Amino acid sequence: MTLSPMLAGLLALIQASSPAAAVPDTTDMLPVAQAITTLMRDHHYDPGELDAPAYRAIEAAMLDLGAQASGRDDFLSGFRAIWTDAPFSHVVLSEARGTAAEMAAHVDTLRIGGGGATLDWRGETAILTVTTMMGQDTIEEINAAYAEIAALGAEALVIDLRENGGGAFAVLPLVRHVLAEPLEAGIFVSQPWNAAHDRAPTAADIAETPSWEGWSLRSFWQAVQANALTPIRFEPVTENRFDGPVYVLVSETTASAAEMAADALKASGRATLIGEVTAGEMLSQTVFDLPEGLQLWLPIADYFSVAHGRIEGAGVTPDIRSEADLADDVAFGLIDEG
């Protein structure tokens, strides 16, 4: 599987916080392959998917690779090749830079160095470009952008998610600032649910389950592994809310948490989505330690939109389809028409 921009960025930023450990190469990678298959069975969001032929073939190939790989580098490259055409997203094998517990503790304080969200203007139209959902500084930039939008009295807002590969909870302020009323956006579905049910949760199931309100990635990872269902609800802000027309630009590389944002904005009725069907890579993953100084990121929860169903493998369909690089022209044309 190709490493998504979200996962690549998250790994790079977290790993940069501690020096790489010197780990000798080894010719015995079979224990690593066996540990990977065990972690998948223990933590993957849907045991049924692991019994399907597509995953069974990958599992057999991983074990064969473990038996034949000449060392870590050979195993890493082989693993990535095996997962190029995968039955589900958010599986990454990486070298460890600190333990999984240390990485989980660090992720909520992560700062990407700025530039995750930028605000520009075209006349009375605000253009908020958000290239990642990671970073406390991205959250700060989104909040500051909405404050400027309110202060200057924008007549329309364009939110550009075309290069956004996802991340974490910068999705929260991005969505909340345009809502007129609370939105039951979707629900994360974890292994306890899928082990006991052969169906997706219904509206009644969602209504009976309290919404998750932590908005910490570390506590979220804990919640989705412990709970069968984890509903997501967005509440409107009380200050700097934008009530004018909203246009959201999306592309086939808009992924993960950015797809959650696009779906929520569409479902709220507050935004018109323009561009391409999004990536369809909407799972939640966390990291586990492996032997030989490696770590495995695997998906621990699936996501179902209340309005549009499962996003993984399907993506979010725009209201107006266009080539990604023309989506802004379409949005400005609609704004100019009034």
Rank of each mutant, 00 (worst) to 15 (best):
H44W: 13
V237K: 10
D85A: 15
G115K: 08
L119M: 09
S268F: 06
I149V: 13
T253F: 10
L283C: 11
Q222M: 08
D263F: 03
E102P: 02
N240G: 11
A264Y: 10
G9L: 05
L50N: 07
P19L: 05
G166E: 06
E252N: 10
P47L: 12
L10I: 08
E102L: 12
V246H: 01
D120Y: 00
A228C: 04
A314D: 05
G214L: 02
I112D: 01
L296G: 03
A105C: 08
R199V: 12
D289C: 11
G165M: 05
T125N: 10
T27K: 13
V158I: 14
A258W: 00
S17T: 13
V91N: 13
D108Y: 10
M40E: 08
F169T: 03
P299K: 03
D243E: 14
Y146W: 13
L294P: 00
D28K: 02
T132W: 03
I149Y: 08
L334G: 04
G214S: 10
V23T: 12
I206G: 02
Y303G: 00
L298M: 09
A264I: 09
E141M: 04
R97E: 08
A151I: 00
A61L: 12
G186K: 02
D198I: 11
R56V: 14
D108H: 10
A271T: 08
P192V: 07
L298A: 01
G338I: 03
S251E: 02
A57H: 08
